[in-house]
Design a binder for these strands. Structure first.
Length: 496
RNA sequence: GCCCCCAUCGUCUAGAGGCCUAGGACGGGGCCCUCUCAAGGCCCAAACUGGGGUUCGAAUCCCCAUGGGGGCACCA
């Protein structure tokens, strides 16, 4: 059982090489939950040691994404902290020193092999159907010779010396002991020609120096797990708790999320990128709830707020198996959380979407609209379809939509005229006053409510689907309702 | 090819040897409500991959098979 009485220090350590995605967000969430649960610290560390792949703006997106999700970090590049800097390129000297420590105590060595040679070795191994691995050429070099070549200006990397014999046992919190024969391991590069470390060195050094107690990371790291454990042990450090999280599979469950699949999701109105999700109208609450439950589960009542999650979260109960993403379920959680918002809250969340869509939003009016649309929204973006017409001067219904089922244009025009008459006779169009006479009209015409109200709906809102008719008309106001009805009558009359 | 990991309804999961006739959620189907679309309520179908052990007793522990996934970079 995990000890939740000691404050945990956990970190999310993304590399700024692209858009922030679901996997990073979920790891951050679990980190955050653990930190909150133990009154510990949640830390953001930027792993930007691959200069070639670093993308400008990516770091900003990560920080914005975490904050938008409500996963505020206690330490990080832009907030500081006692264990900084929190950007690996700013910790360069630390890695150089630590690499040297390993060389000095015989756990690492300089390697002068060129990329060309390594590539050739790899190809030959592949041809012979062998495992591709470093062949150990430079491991045999004497330290004198290595020193001479370095002094001669030759380029080199530092490789970690993996043991040849025996086995390495690494303990994962969810999987127990993972044992691997050392002969299956090779000597990985820990410090590159450019002087910057690879993940293997940088993450181990930083996790130790930053006093990380629990390392939560994707299970794609399981392959290099023994390497990492060996590095930590070579330094003589205590190990953190290792927790390898399940990875996300594409919706079909066949293979992990790929670029291709990501593009596919966007076409369907979804995305695996946090920034896109925000723009698509998903809420942090819905997203968090959904992500939390991929890789973790609760017995019942799975609608969870942040405080519910903090209360119920348990590392021991995480699920190690891969999880296929299910966007339909995201829709469900998003809608559910939207319905949990107060009217003021929802209005504030929707307003930016309406504004962005070009509507001039009146706050008081929006507040009246919210109760009408709340349970119809899946995303905040849906607010445009359900509330946009309230802010339009005029609407342009599709003429065909004005014709009720079972009626022709002439008959529909007649219905519209009668409705206009009834509504025009009212000093004010509100729900209470308008519904009874309109119901009476349905009776009198021997039609069904669908037909009559449908015509009025399309005329007044410009669309076939809308919030409840009478409540909507009340907000639109008498003048505009009559004006729009009149226009619809004319449209119908001009139809053959 | 080699190494590693995983395995409960279509999907996400609960399950920690007897509380299991296997629970919940999404999705699906049906009914109710209903001015459209939703939301909501009620109901239904749907799973322990297979085979061997261990045990009085296995979804749960062990082994094998099968299936799925991940990794084999001077990327993270």
């Amino acid at each position: 059982m995990t000890d939740y009485t000691r404050p945990a220090r956990v970190r999310v350590a993304p590399s700024p090489t692209g858009h922030m995605h679901l996997g990073t967000a979920r790891t951050a969430l679990y980190d955050y939950l653990l930190a909150k649960k133990t009154s510990g610290k949640f830390i953001l560390r930027i792993e930007d040691t691959d200069l070639k792949r670093t993308i400008p703006g990516a770091e900003r997106e990560i920080m914005d994404g975490l904050r938008w999700l409500g996963l505020d970090y206690d330490e990080g590049p832009d907030v500081g902290g006692a264990f900084g800097p929190y950007r690996q390129t700013e910790r360069r000297d630390l890695y150089t020193q630590h690499a040297k420590m390993l060389v000095d105590n015989g756990h690492a060595y300089p390697c002068f092999c060129t990329p060309d040679r390594l590539e050739k070795v790899r190809q030959e191994q592949q041809k012979r159907k062998e495992t591709t691995r470093y062949d150990g050429t430079c491991r045999k070099l004497s330290s004198d010779e290595a020193a001479r070549r370095i002094a001669g200006g030759e380029k080199y990397v530092i490789r970690f010396k993996m043991p040849f014999e025996g086995s390495t046992t690494a303990r994962d919190l969810l999987r127990g002991d993972i044992v691997i024969e050392n002969k299956n391991l090779d000597d990985s590069v820990i410090l590159k020609t450019d002087g910057l470390p690879t993940y293997h060195l940088a993450a181990m050094v930083d996790d130790h120096l930053m006093q990380i107690t629990h390392v939560l990371r994707g299970s794609e790291w399981l392959g290099t797990f023994p390497l990492h454990v060996n590095i930590v042990r070579a330094f003589g450090w205590d190990e953190p708790e290792w927790v390898h999280l399940s990875i996300f599979l594409k919706p079909s469950g066949k293979g992990k999320m790929s670029k291709r699949e990501a593009a596919e999701a966007v076409k369907d109105g979804y995305s695996i990128f946090i920034k896109d999700m925000q723009e698509l109208g998903f809420t942090p609450e819905g997203l968090l709830n959904w992500m939390a439950l991929m890789g973790w589960g609760v017995a019942e009542n799975d609608v969870l707020t942040m405080s519910d999650m903090i209360e119920k979260f348990s590392l021991d109960h995480l699920n190690p198996s891969p999880a296929a993403v299910n966007f339909q379920k995201l829709d469900h959680f998003n809608g559910t959380h939207i319905r949990l918002f107060s009217t003021d809250e929802l209005a504030a969340r929707i307003k930016p979407f309406l504004t962005k869509a070009g509507f001039n939003v009146d706050d008081a009016r929006l507040l009246r609209i919210i109760p009408l649309i709340r349970e119809r929204l899946v995303t905040l973006d849906d607010g445009i379809d359900f509330a946009g017409f309230f802010f339009k001067e005029t609407v342009e219904p599709n003429p065909d939509d004005l014709i009720a089922k079972g009626l022709d244009a002439r008959q529909s025009a007649n219905v519209a005229r009668k409705a206009h008459e009834i509504l025009a006779a009212l000093p004010e169009i509100n729900h209470a006053a308008a519904e009874p006479p309109m119901r009476a009209l349905v009776e009198k015409l021997a039609l069904n409510p669908n037909q009559v109200f449908g015509i009025v709906r399309v005329a007044v809102t410009g669309q076939k689907v809308s919030p409840p008719l009478f409540e909507s008309m009340e907000i639109i106001g008498r003048a505009k309702v009559l004006e729009r009805l009149q226009k619809a009558i004319e449209m119908l009359e001009s139809m053959p």
